[in-house]
Structures are given as C-alpha cells and as structure tokens.
Design a protein around this nucleic acid. Sequence first.
RNA 1: GGAGAGGUUCCCGAGUGGUCAAAGGGGGCAGACUGUAAAUCUGUUAGCUCAGCUUUCGAAGGUCCGAAUCCUUCUCUCUCCA
Length: 411
Amino acid sequence: MNKAIQVLIDRGFVKACTDIDALSDLMDKEPVTFYLGTDPTGRSLHIGHMVPFFAMHHLQENGHNPIALVGNGTAMIGDPSGKTELRKMLSQEQIMDNSKHIKEQLSSVVDFSENPKPGMGKAQMKFNGDWLLNLNYIEFLRDIGSQFSVNRMLTFESYKQRLERGLSFIEFNYQLLQSYDYLTLYRNCGARLQIGGDDQWGNIVAGTDLIRRLDGGECYGLTFHLITRADGKKMGKSEQGAVFIDPELYSPYDFYQYWRNVSDDDVIKFMKLFTFMSLDEIADWEKVNINEAKEKLAYEQTRIIHGEEEASKARDAAKAAFSTGGDKSGMPSLEVSADDLKKGIGVIDLFASTALCKTKSEARRLITDGGASLNGEKVQDLELVVDSSFVQDGDIILRAGKKRFFRIVVK
RNA sequence: GGAGAGGUUCCCGAGUGGUCAAAGGGGGCAGACUGUAAAUCUGUUAGCUCAGCUUUCGAAGGUCCGAAUCCUUCUCUCUCCA
C-alpha cells in the first residue's frame, strides 16, 4: 500500500475508496493532485469540517498536491446530502465574505506557501464560482446534464431521506455541479483524486463517472469517516453550538476546554485524527493517565488551530481555574472600572454581564440553584452587592457550575 | 390550476374559548456522585423593575368579558390530483 494512504488508514480516516489499489499504484508512481471542496456557508469553519483537511495535510506531507476548493458557486445552491432541510439561501456578498475567512483558517493545517519544504506537495486554492457562476444553462444541460440518469440519482442514499421530506430542484442539481467541479479540476489542473467526508460519497462517485464518460479519464474518490463522539453527539457541536475555528466566535480558552473534556473513549482516536503527533508518540500516551492525555490532546489541537501562544495561555488559564497557580490571563474576562465597582454591582447583573449567563433570569436561576460562586465562595444571596472589597489580586473570579469560569478585571 | 393536511416555546410533539408561559420527550443549565470523562438520580429551562408585570403559539386584522384555540385575509410547507 502507498505510504500516504497507509498513513490515513492507520490514523483512522479512511471509510471508502473507489479503487484503493489503483489509487495506491498511482500515488506510488507520481505526486497526485487531489482536491477537497468546502462550501463557505458560514463565517467560520468548525472542527467537524476539519477532518478532511487534516487528511489533506498528511497527503501534502507525503508529496501530493492539494487543491482546497472553496465552493463560492455551490454555496449558492446547497448540498442536500446528509441534510434534512433546504439550506438557507445566502447572498453573494455573504459568501465572498465567508470565503475570505475560510482561506485564512485553512492555512493552519495546509501549507499554501509558494515554496513548500522539499518533499511536500504544493497546495493551491481555487474558487468554483470562477467556472460555475457564468455557466450557460442550456449548454450545461446538453453537455453535463445529459450524462446524468435521474433514475440512478434517485437511488443514491444521500437523497433517500430528502425524498421523504421534500427535495427542491435546485438542490437536486448540486451533484451535477460538484461533478462538474471535478471535471474542471481534472481538465485544468490534472486533479485525479477527490477526498471528502463520507456524506460526499455519492457526489464524488458521480464526478469520477462523469470524467470517465466525457474524457475517458480514470479518477478516484476517497472518503473519510464522519466523526462522531463516544456520546453519540455530532463532532464539532458543543452545548453552545458549533465549535468554531474563529477565535472571535469561540475563544481559544473554550476551544481548549472542549478538547479537554472529550470522552475517555475518544482521546486516542482524536489524537490520531486531529493532531500531527506520530503514531508512536500517541501509543505512548495511551499508556499514561487518561486525564493527562486529554490535556495533551487539548494543547496540541489548540496549538495547531490557534498557535503556540494561545495554546499555552489557554492551558495556564485552565490550570489557574481548576487547580492552583498558573496564569489566569487566558481565561475569558471582562473589564470593569474601579469607579463602578466602588459603587457596587448586584450579583445578578454581574453574572448576566458575562458569558456565564445570557439573561438576568438565567443568573437568578443559577444562584437559586446554588451553582454560582464568587472567588470560590458560593453565592447565597440574590441581593448581594459586589464591590471593591471582593477584589483579590486585581480581579474577581466568577464561576458557574463546576467548570465555567469568568474573570472580572478591575481597570 | 384543483383537493386536502399543516405551521406551537432551542428541537420533536401535545393542546381545539378561561384552570396555558402552554403536557410529554430530547437538548441545555444546575445539584448529588466523580477524574475538568461517561453513566445514573434530582431540580430547573420566555423576559423583566420577579409572590407582580410584559411579550410568546406562521403574519395581519376581527369576534368575545376572555383566544394558541372561533372568523377573515395573507404567507410558507407537505401530500394527492391535472
């Protein structure tokens, strides 16, 4: 088996391949240009999106050339695969704005530099709007549409669910557009492989079929497991919503905490998928205390996404919160002026002004339930007024429940 | 175009004139137990100036002392027919 593919198999990525032996031979023979598409439907990617990009990283490291395709064209349509409902229509401006963010975010995992290190593949980024947005409808139907059998499409697993709940024609076209992407990248960039999550299987196979029919070219598809957590929840979803890559939407501290709190059963699996640690190193972590392994996982993952400095800050802040010592500065915080504090702030207002509680009712409830603490002391009184006398070492530490901390910094 | 069904609080889903801020489940939050894990049990889950008040049941009007529940118009979704 080809080395690059073996890496992906060993790390637990691979779910299915159109022809793994043929693909392996091809990759042994020459560097392969491969692509992965993402539709910019949100302002930020979340960690669930990242699995195939980590795979892309490993393939690049082994000398193959990635194309990150940003679907600013397909984002106008919406992919029905794996979804139960029609995607909300996005405006062109939103999509372009999203695309910009995504480009930056991918750089943490994939090296887009002009001159990558020797032995590494050269990566590029493409936008499918470049060829999709100005398509001529009639021409497209004649050239591409004629190659697709509706009967066959209807048998695809990805449409089954939607056939029951309703599928609009616009989404039914998605597969044709994604196939056309593949065809275009095959023709213009020599792409021979498309990778993606397993929900993309149908779309990917449709693409290889199209290329074979029109150009007689042999191309491949490789899909990865859709990652689920041991508790059955969707990867990348936290209680608050998606775990975004963008630090504005999801702070590095919370990001670190997300990984710090994964289930025992997921730790090793996630190390393989979401870090660049070698398999040998991971095997060593398997032997040590599971809690330390979680810390390592959280640190590594945060380092990759947010950088060394943020990762250390997040780790120190977590230490400060959960044990003693450590630098608290990475903890989510809010500045309050010394004057305001002198006057005193009601506990309810104080909690409600932080990310700990969204509303005053929620703050009231939290205190009533006995889940709120100030500097480690449980808040008993709803009427309590917090003033300067509560300040210790320049700040006040609020806590909701056992593990949500917030720092009030006096200015 | 015709016929029918339906849009309920974060989600699913009850509710057909007052006892409805709305059953039940899921999810979330909190408490107990723990290892910042899982499982389990308990409480809680619209907002606020919180034993009171205000805004919610697709939208806008109307009937009534009183509507999520009745009427009118609009709108969206689904199913069947052409």
